[in-house]
Design a protein around this nucleic acid. Structure first.
Lengths: 139, 139
DNA sequence: TTTAATACTAACTAAAAAGTATGTAATGTG
DNA sequence: CACATTACATACTTTTTAGTTAGTATTAAA
């Protein structure tokens, strides 16, 4: 890793590259938007809105606009009425997939650590991932 | 990856595991605190404060307290005057290292993409980045 | 002519996160 | 006895982020 001095890429100012990544994928909704963009080659605005429960239209376009500005997402407009707009990951966006899934993976192991500790007080070996974790986590 | 319904682990509520990870390492200062905790086996409060340029004492303990609560960081108090407190990563905290460095790595490739585009207008081969990332992330 | 559908925009409010400024405890040293 | 050192705590303000509500353009169908 590297030292911490102010850098600039495009319109983004940051100190370390880690922070740069966080600026792009961080926040309340962007991770979820990215999640669904990974799942679908192309996805429409309204489809996304329905899939991401709880998101408002404002937050959704805001996230999409940010991601588009950062070259993570591509926006394709079909000139028709009612309008149709499809969103998809750019190549840069697709390069995020490994880190997204490693975070997902880590989140799962983290959760399973607590489940293991709370429910059985067993010693948990870090690095092993409980596959049926979903069943054990409170919904 | 998995569906999006409300889950709970400890005091944290989240929808997908990715989000859980973001809740733990996200924010303005936690990434930087983690960065330095990775670099040092043990590090004192004041040392951290001096290393993380721009952080206030309030933000530093807030970050440390959060990380401690989430079992990422261990706090060791030496009963002496003036006080001495050392912070270190727990095993759970150390398990974060791969994802931290993969984010760092991604941030770097992202930055280099823009540098390449702006400075020479050369065509940048994303494929090589993606391959490198995969190596970083696989564990 | 009204309505419906879709993908937004804009103005405003509320909540969360971060920043600032000051205070505290404990004690060894000058 | 004043002062310095260290690791915080507390109250308060500012800034950032998110949420709410309402509105727009376009056209085809009822």
């Amino acid at each position: 890793m590297d030292e911490c001095e102010l850098k600039k890429v495009g319109n983004l100012e940051f100190v370390c590259y880690f922070q740069l990544a966080m600026m792009i994928i961080g926040g309340k909704w962007k991770p979820k938007v990215l999640f669904h963009l990974v799942q679908h080659e192309n996805i429409r605005f309204g489809e996304l809105r329905r899939k991401i429960i709880g998101i408002s239209e404002k937050m959704l376009i805001q996230s999409l606009k940010d991601l588009e500005k950062d070259k993570i997402v591509h926006r394709k407009v079909y000139r028709q009425v009612p309008p149709k707009v499809e969103y998809s990951l750019t190549d840069l966006g697709k390069s995020l997939i490994p880190i997204l899934s490693s975070m997902e993976q880590w989140g799962k192991s983290y959760a399973s650590y607590f489940v293991a500790k709370k429910e059985k007080n067993t010693k948990y070996k870090l690095g092993t991932i409980i596959d049926n974790l979903d069943e054990q986590v409170k919904h």
